[in-house]
């Protein structure tokens, strides 16, 4: 197996791996952007009566950690809030039809 072939193989692997990595929450993502996105997602959830109270808790925690200067913690909390808001909307969407299976007949 030639060296160039191996290099080519590694390159190919990278091409596959890089987009995969991009999906994983990057440490480089900045707090302000993630926090704003989480807030927007939660506002949408509140407006549609889909919101969870724990999302607000996570947002408050993110804000507090940010103010204390704990950037890693703040980013993690903001990402958590964003994930919570997203799943709460997803639950709400699923339940638009799924609730019918629970009705006592």
């Amino acid at each position: 197996m030639s060296l160039s072939m191996l290099r080519g193989g590694l390159l190919a692997a990278l091409c596959v791996a890089v987009p995969t990595l991009a999906v994983v929450p990057a440490q480089a993502a900045d707090f302000a952007t993630v926090y704003a996105a989480a807030q927007a997602a939660q506002k949408q959830a509140v407006d549609t009566f889909c919101a969870w109270n724990v999302t607000d808790n996570a947002l408050a925690e993110a804000k507090a950690l940010h103010e204390k200067g704990d950037e890693d913690g703040a980013l993690k909390a903001a990402q958590h809030a964003q994930a919570l808001a997203k799943v709460s909307m997803q639950q709400c969407e699923e339940q638009k039809t799924l609730w019918k299976q629970a009705v006592v007949r």
Binding site: C50, L84, Q91, C92, L98, W99, A102, V103, V104
Partner: peptide, 20 residues
């Protein structure tokens, strides 16, 4: 009826989960 039977919240309960 939907509000009663729809799951909600992080714990994923509906009113009916507990009270039925």
């Amino acid at each position: 009826k939907r509000v009663f039977y729809a799951r909600r919240g992080q714990l994923n309960f509906s009113c009916a989960s507990c009270h039925v």
